[in-house]
């Protein structure tokens, strides 16, 4: 695989905080990446540095084999859709698209027009007066129509309703299928994007804690539910990432998979095995810092139905946190 971006030992220190702590990773050409992690994990910082909108404290970044800083050759091939892009006070979406058209050599006006129609975006209203969702739509349209070889979407869905988000996902996938390119999508709505992405980069506390194909990531962990004593026998010696209980029933999530014989034994024991979705896995791996919500032991928090309802409650958690905390860092 060809990599379009190489990052080595990248560190970014703000006055009192380490936003990125010596991270190294490669971004493969023509893949859709999910850049996932909690608020403040370092996602936006990483994207800003890769697009030369911020300087690293130390470490090295190569994009298309070159340093991106003040490098027009590289920058015109990249598009960064920021979560809160600033526009001049009197700018309208029409102005924003006209400017984007000049900047991006592969800009597709036909696609932009279709998207403007899809999102029913008022072109002549000043951007200042647009709703949060319409503002997000401006960014999404620029990101897609730029057809840049590397496109970054930093939480592009803020204020977009479910219908508009689905338009974005569908358009992204259809256009990517037609014109393959590299896409990095940061999102808290992991369930919504998990089937769209080919690879997962998970940032936690300024470090990369997962760099996997999405298919492999979905197979990383297993959940077993049933009689607590029997469950404990199954997980004995395995790396447990989450444990909850209700009376004599335990639900334990561990890293790894069971082979065919082990599965048969577990099922014969009357226990239930369930796959762990990408969202559940990521919640389990990154919830250590969430105050008042210990990841292990204790009472089964609010989800008593260990299988189906268990998948739902973390999702509402993250998206709530999401809408409440607007900006990062």
């Amino acid at each position: 695989m060809n990599s379009v971006i190489q990052v080595r030992n990248l560190t970014k220190r703000y006055k009192d905080a380490l936003a990125l702590d010596g991270v190294s990773f490669d971004i493969e050409q023509d893949a859709i990446y999910g850049l996932l992690g909690r608020n403040g994990a370092g996602k936006t910082t990483a994207m800003s540095i890769l697009t030369a909108q911020n300087l690293p404290t130390s470490g090295e970044v190569r994009v298309f084999g070159e340093n991106p800083y003040e490098n027009a050759r590289v920058l015109s091939r990249m598009c960064f859709v920021r979560e809160s892009q600033k526009y001049p006070d009197d700018a309208t979406p029409r102005h924003a698209f006209a400017a984007a058209r000049l900047f991006f050599p592969r800009w597709d006006q036909g696609l932009a027009d279709e998207l403007i129609d899809d999102f029913q975006l008022p072109l002549k209203r000043t951007i200042k007066k647009l709703s949060r969702g319409q503002l997000s739509a401006v960014g999404v349209i620029i990101g897609l129509a730029s057809r840049a070889e590397v496109t970054f979407f930093d939480e592009p869905y803020l204020g977009l309703d479910a219908v508009a988000r689905q338009i974005f996902y569908d358009r992204l996938l259809a256009d990517y299928a037609e014109v393959p390119r590299t896409i990095l999508l940061s999102s808290h709505l992991i369930d919504e994007v998990s089937n769209l992405i080919e690879r997962v980069l998970l940032i936690d506390d300024g470090r990369i804690i997962m760099d996997e194909s999405a298919d492999d990531a979905r197979a990383l962990a297993t959940n077993v539910v049933g009689d607590a004593a029997a469950v404990e026998r199954v997980v004995n010696g395995r790396e447990v990432i989450h444990r909850e209980g209700l009376g004599r029933v335990a639900s334990v999530t561990f890293l790894g998979r069971l082979d065919g014989a082990e599965r048969a034994a577990v099922v014969a024991d009357g226990l239930e095995l369930a796959p762990v979705s990408l969202q559940q896995l990521i919640v389990r791996l990154t919830q250590h810092r969430s105050a008042g919500r210990p990841g292990a032991d204790g009472f089964g928090s609010n989800n008593s139905g260990p299988d189906s309802s268990g998948t739902k409650s973390p999702s509402t958690d993250t998206s709530d946190a999401d809408t409440q905390e607007g900006s990062l860092r």
Binding site: I32, D170, L173, A174, A177, P180, N195, L196, I197, A214
Partner: peptide, 17 residues
């Protein structure tokens, strides 16, 4: 592959697999 990807709303690499 692309038709499957768009229809099922999944990454084309997954559909190709």
């Amino acid at each position: 592959t692309n038709e499957l990807a768009v229809f099922h709303r999944i990454n084309p690499a997954t559909a190709a697999k």
